[in-house]
Simulated scan of single mutants.
Amino acid sequence: MWLNFGWVAIKIILILVVASLVIRIGRSAIGNMLRFKTKTPLRISERRETTLVKLLQNILTYAVYFISFITILSALTIDITGLLAGAGILGVAIGFGAQNLVKDVIAGFFIIFEDQFSVGDEVRINSFEGNVQEIGLRTTKVLNWTGELYIVPNGSITEVTNFSIYNSTAVVDFNISYEGDLNEVVSMIERLLARMPDKYSEIVGIPKLLGIEQFEGTEIVLRVTAETIPSKNWYIARKLRKELKLAIDAFQLEMKNGQDYQEG
């Protein structure tokens, strides 16, 4: 009896030691695997990586604990068939009753794993557009610029447009009069655009004057484009409109004063 008892105790100790080693090695491997993940089409946020590491480590820990518990019961000669059958039936019942929850959790896991978007990104999720405030395993919260907070179940996310990954482009159309020398106006605008990157750090490179976009009544429509850092295209477009308006007004006033002076 004591021999059997000692042998069972040794088995339990070995099971616990092996489980502890598996958990320690597995947690370290998960951390290293994600730490050296450098090749990805999307940028990896440190917060997202930490969340994913903890999630996978917890899943590994619970799985090893469950297997260890079943193995210890088997070593104690306890019939685990009925226990596993009952757990299976309970799992099926919970699965049928919480299909949407399971769907949301699985979708949330892949959002985090693939780093589809991060907290702080400007996104369009389905028909909702705004800034990502929070990403959970079950829901994602998006704050619209007018103040509405959208809480979207992860399982219902079918389309995602992320505006915060690549540089954006600001497009500005503006009108000038047919009167005057078009070449002089173009030259003035190009000089103005060359100064914009020094004035606005959000602009990447020198904005481009593409030329005449169309003719409208008594005016010519010109188009300017500027590459900006992600999600700053609307801000820079407003600033460019202001700069162009002030520059064109000053240019026209200068030309008028010069013409009046010559006539006088």
Rank of each mutant, 00 (worst) to 15 (best):
S168Y: 02
R238K: 09
D121K: 11
V152T: 07
F110S: 05
F174Y: 14
G205M: 09
R138F: 11
I206R: 12
K242W: 03
T146C: 06
L34G: 07
L90I: 05
Y150A: 05
D260A: 13
S68E: 00
K242D: 09
I111P: 07
A63C: 07
Y178K: 08
K54N: 13
N175A: 03
V185Q: 00
Y62W: 13
I94D: 03
D249L: 12
V17E: 09
L192F: 05
R138A: 15
I106S: 11
L60P: 04
I203D: 02
R27H: 06
P197Y: 02
L210Q: 09
P207G: 06
E122P: 00
I203N: 01
K141H: 03
L182R: 01
E184G: 03
G108A: 06
Q214M: 09
V123W: 02
I67V: 14
S127K: 09
D173A: 03
T139M: 02
S201Q: 06
T40S: 15
L246D: 14
A75S: 11
S177R: 12
K11A: 11
L60G: 03
S74N: 03
N175F: 00
A9H: 06
K103P: 01
L83E: 03
R124V: 14
I44H: 12
F110Q: 08
N100T: 11
T71A: 15
G91R: 03
R241F: 04
G120Y: 10
N257C: 04
S201F: 07
R47C: 07
N257M: 14
Q133T: 15
I206H: 02
R27E: 12
G205Y: 08
I30Y: 08
